[in-house]
């Protein structure tokens, strides 16, 4: 009994140390973001600033067009998430409920293409968008991301778990396919849809390489791209850099903490299925 208590204590100690290592960078980020410039570069480091300099956030926000970056990021996140949900619902329905010619082959081909790293697609997609005249436009940031094979796969699996008898019953009652999908399947699949939307929103908010390549003017930059250019300007003004980083990191942490059930379950389910 005593040995068990001892090992329990050991387990907690390890978990707490590990947990601290996970969140310390964020605590340090927020602490630095609230410091006066002369409190930043000192040894030993000071964890709690004498006065909380909230004005660092205002300074950072106005030093670079962060309002514009935020607007761009929000437009991209909202449009691509809604768009992806729509294309995913329709495609997953076809793959799970309609028996059509070539269905299994088409699905296998789609899954196979998931193996190709996105970097391979980068250059031709850039050329395509350039030919469409979409470079440095919202179209370039949104349209290529309006569908995801991974999401279709995830939702198809969920749709398959909904009993088929339900659709037979609805058909007998004279419900059209399309109405059945939107009024019965979609509400039933709400948890899966929330997971897909959240993973998409987080991925889209954090995306870097693609927005870096397809935007050239300051006005079209998203937050991560704007942050890297700001980091060149701010140089070693770490209190401002940390304030700007907090503005990008904190919204996703809050979103995650509120809706973590959907994110963690989604990640776990996708992982096991994969």
């Amino acid at each position: 009994m005593q040995r068990e208590a001892l090992s329990k204590g050991f387990v907690y100690t390890l978990l707490i140390i590990g947990g601290l290592l996970m969140i310390l960078p964020f605590v340090w980020m927020i602490s630095t973001s609230l410091k006066a410039p002369n409190e930043v570069m000192i040894m030993p480091p000071k964890w709690i600033p004498d006065i909380f300099h909230w004005d660092n956030y205002v300074t950072a926000w106005t030093m670079a067009p962060f309002a514009r970056y935020t607007l761009n990021s929000l437009v991209v996140v909202i449009a691509s998430t809604i768009g992806e949900l729509i294309t995913t619902i329709l495609a997953a329905y076809a793959f799970s409920r309609i028996n059509f010619y070539g269905r299994d082959i088409a699905f296998a081909v789609l899954l196979g293409t998931m193996m190709v790293p996105g970097e391979v697609l980068l250059i031709p997609n850039f050329v395509t968008l350039a030919n469409l005249g979409w470079i440095d436009q919202y179209e370039a940031l949104i349209i290529p991301w309006l569908a995801s094979i991974f999401s279709i796969f995830l939702l198809r699996q969920f749709f398959l778990s909904i009993p088929k008898e339900l659709s037979f019953a609805a058909k007998i009652d004279g419900c059209s396919d399309f109405r059945f999908l939107w009024s019965i399947m979609v509400p039933l699949a709400k948890p899966a849809l929330i997971t897909i939307a959240l993973l998409k929103a987080i991925g889209s908010w954090n995306a870097f390489l693609w927005p870096l390549i397809v935007t050239s003017s300051e006005n079209m930059r998203t937050l991560p791209v704007g942050l890297t250019s700001f980091s060149t300007d701010a140089g070693t003004m770490y209190e401002l850099l940390m304030a700007a980083s907090t503005m990008i990191i904190l919204p996703m942490i809050i979103l995650y903490i509120i809706l973590q059930k959907y994110i963690i379950e989604g990640v776990a389910r996708a992982g096991i299925k994969g």
Binding site: G18, G19, M22, I23, P25, F26, W28, M29, I202, W205, N206, F208, L223, P224, V225, L227, T228, S231, L241, M242, A244, S245, I248, I249, M252, I253, L255, Y256, I257, Q260, I263, I264
Partner: peptide
């Protein structure tokens, strides 16, 4: 929850941190 936090954050922003 705590261990998963870094995963949802922007790579660019945490790299600057």
């Amino acid at each position: 929850t705590v261990y998963f936090i870094p995963f949802v954050t922007s790579v660019v922003a945490v790299s600057i941190v």
